[in-house]
Design a protein around this nucleic acid. Structure first.
Lengths: 133, 133
DNA sequence: ATTGGTGCAAAGGATTTGCAGTCTA
DNA sequence: TAGACTGCAAATCCTTTGCACCAAT
């Protein structure tokens, strides 16, 4: 778990003004590598944060962190966005029954067939699984 | 472009009752390999279909076709689901500026690291790109 | 007749937005 | 003080649902 000061430095290194809410959310998010939804973060913040943090601020902060490269958006479910605090190169396994997300190693992917005049922003591999019946 | 009769046979082969709306939507969807959203299909149907087809039927039909294996859901954008009438093994390039989706070959992906007691339903590779500035 | 499909409008749920109040540099 | 951030509620957008009507077996 990072100290407030460590989070403040992390944010500022990424050009993000370190406000109180952002620091508290940062401590929750960067405590460990995890996959978390806006809803889950709201729930977590309502228990653990010193001050209560509004829904809009949760969404704003998640979007800002993702944009600034502190979080990675994980698009596995059309109805809900997850954010991954593990920035290393990896793919995801999404259990469509339980909603759980776990990591898998990402194999080398050949990038030879991208349209010219564009640049790759992200490469995602998602394996959707269901519980064996 | 498939004839009505060809679409009827296709649907029945997949255990789908061939109603008029489903056949018309099938003709639009299976005319060529494409990536289409519910909204785009509604737009297309409003011009080309013989009778007008309601929003609910569009969604019901897309979900049914996907469930029965005639379409593949493409989850690239958290705000909108696309459906792919190309069922062959391939990945996608999603242009976050234009919203365009195009295909890329899918490299062999090692499936050795899936959780036991689950079975893979789909494997998606999505490369998000932006226009070079 | 019975089962399944369709259309319409309303409900639902995640996310965004507008604006007033608050904090920070 | 100016600019940026936050909170709240309302608005938005995509998608699903409930229900009455229609079609096919």
């Amino acid at each position: 778990v990072l100290s407030k000061q460590e989070v403040i430095e992390l944010l500022e290194r990424h050009g993000i003004m370190a406000t109180q809410q952002r620091v508290e959310l940062g401590r929750l998010l960067f405590a460990r590598p995890q996959h978390i939804s806006a809803e889950q973060l709201m729930e977590s913040a309502s228990h653990k944060a010193e001050r209560q943090i509004s829904k809009a601020t949760i969404y704003n902060t998640l979007n800002l962190f993702a944009e600034k490269g502190l979080l990675r958006e994980v698009i596995v479910d059309p109805t809900k966005t997850f954010y991954d605090s593990n920035l290393s190169r990896h793919g995801h396994v999404y259990n469509i029954d339980s909603g759980e997300i776990s990591d898998i190693p990402m194999p080398a992917v050949l990038m030879s067939d991208l349209p010219a005049d564009t640049t790759a922003v992200s490469i995602d591999i998602v394996v959707r699984v269901k519980n064996s019946c």
